[in-house]
Computed example of a mutant assay.
Amino acid sequence: MYSQGRSSAMRTAVSAILIVFLLSVQAQAARYDVGGSSGWGFSTGNWASGKNFKAGDILIFNYDPSLHNVVEVDANGYKGCSSSAKAKTYSSGKDRIKLVKGKHYFICSFAGHCGGGVKIEVNAL
């Protein structure tokens, strides 16, 4: 009976350590509302400037889907405000995108919007 109690206590301790570890890893990921309280739109401008993004962080794009969308493009698409057929397009108005390490480029593909500033570049470390 003593060994069963000891085994049970060991399993409980290991479970507790695992839970603390998972919570600490999850707590390290930041959530960012793109554009702040104004959301994704023409006021987004330099929103990403000065922020330190990390792999695992989540970008939350809030917008009216009848007015905007979010397209993840490559560097050329960002510079030229264009997207390819392979580009991932989001259109829910409440898009959540988890960052992986590296540069990410997002634009709105509605006519004139990207050129008007509805685009961001993010580098996740």
Rank of each mutant, 00 (worst) to 15 (best):
M1T: 04
Y2T: 14
G5W: 03
R6Q: 15
R6M: 11
S7V: 02
A9Q: 14
A9M: 10
M10P: 00
M10K: 15
R11S: 10
R11Q: 14
T12D: 11
A13K: 11
V14H: 06
L18E: 09
V20E: 05
V20K: 10
F21H: 08
L22P: 01
L22R: 07
L23A: 08
V25K: 13
A27Q: 10
Q28R: 15
A29P: 00
A29N: 14
A29I: 00
A30M: 02
A30H: 06
R31E: 14
Y32A: 04
Y32C: 04
Y32I: 04
D33I: 13
D33C: 00
G35N: 10
S37K: 12
S37T: 12
S38A: 13
G39N: 11
G41A: 04
G41T: 06
G41M: 02
F42A: 09
F42C: 01
S43P: 00
G45T: 10
N46L: 09
W47G: 06
A48T: 13
A48C: 01
S49P: 00
G50H: 11
N52T: 15
N52R: 13
N52D: 07
N52E: 11
F53S: 05
F53Q: 09
K54H: 13
A55S: 15
A55K: 09
L59F: 07
I60W: 06
F61Q: 08
F61A: 10
N62L: 07
Y63F: 14
D64T: 13
P65A: 14
S66R: 13
L67W: 02
N69I: 03
V70Q: 10
V70C: 05
V70N: 09
V71L: 01
V71E: 03
E72L: 04
D74F: 04
D74W: 03
A75N: 13
N76Y: 01
G77K: 07
C81T: 09
C81S: 05
C81Q: 05
S83H: 12
A87T: 12
T89E: 14
T89R: 15
K94N: 15
K94I: 01
K94Y: 06
R96Y: 03
K98S: 10
L99E: 07
K101I: 02
G102H: 05
K103A: 14
K103H: 08
H104T: 11
F106W: 04
C108Q: 06
C108Y: 01
F110D: 11
A111G: 08
G112L: 12
C114W: 02
C114Y: 02
C114N: 07
G115R: 06
G116E: 08
G117D: 09
G117Y: 05
V118Y: 01
V118I: 13
K119N: 04
K119S: 04
E121M: 10
N123H: 08
